[in-house]
């Protein structure tokens, strides 16, 4: 196969771009920069003492990073809502079930095994 057909823009592309403004490489790099800064901020909680604010700050940072990767790199922002439902539905279910489990286990051991 010669290099020529590879570089020609395929048909499917036109269809793809109909979904409004599709992000450009420049957008992606910007998101990556934001993620880099957020990671640096995460690291800062290890270097500096934020006292009681450290953990809430980390939780927020994790959530923001999560949403950025999901919305931009995984295109959830531009795709059908169904995909977001699978992503966040799975996350919510896992979170609920396992947090409940941990609470039950810790509560049971805190009250002493009957």
């Amino acid at each position: 196969m010669s290099a020529n057909p590879e570089t020609s823009a395929p048909q499917a592309d036109a269809e793809h771009d109909e979904h409004g403004h599709h992000p450009t490489p420049r957008d992606y790099v910007r998101i990556a920069l934001i993620l880099a800064v957020l990671t640096l901020m995460e690291y800062s909680t290890y270097v500096f003492d934020f006292g009681g604010l450290g953990i809430p700050l980390l939780v927020v940072l994790i959530a923001v990073k999560f949403v950025y990767v999901a919305s931009w790199f995984m295109h959830l922002k531009f795709d059908t809502k169904i995909f977001s439902r699978f992503m966040y539905g799975g996350l919510a279910l896992a979170f609920t079930l396992y947090v409940l489990t941990l609470i039950i286990i810790l509560f049971a051991s805190a009250t002493g095994m009957e």
């Binding site: 279910l93 079930l97 039950i104 509560f107 049971a108 051991s109 009250t111 095994m113 009957e114």
Partner: peptide, 18 residues
């Protein structure tokens, strides 16, 4: 159905609230 699993464990250590 996802929220009733511990009823299999009533005689295990899960505490009265659970």
């Amino acid at each position: 159905g996802f929220g009733v699993w511990a009823h299999h464990m009533f005689t295990s250590a899960i505490g009265p609230v659970a």
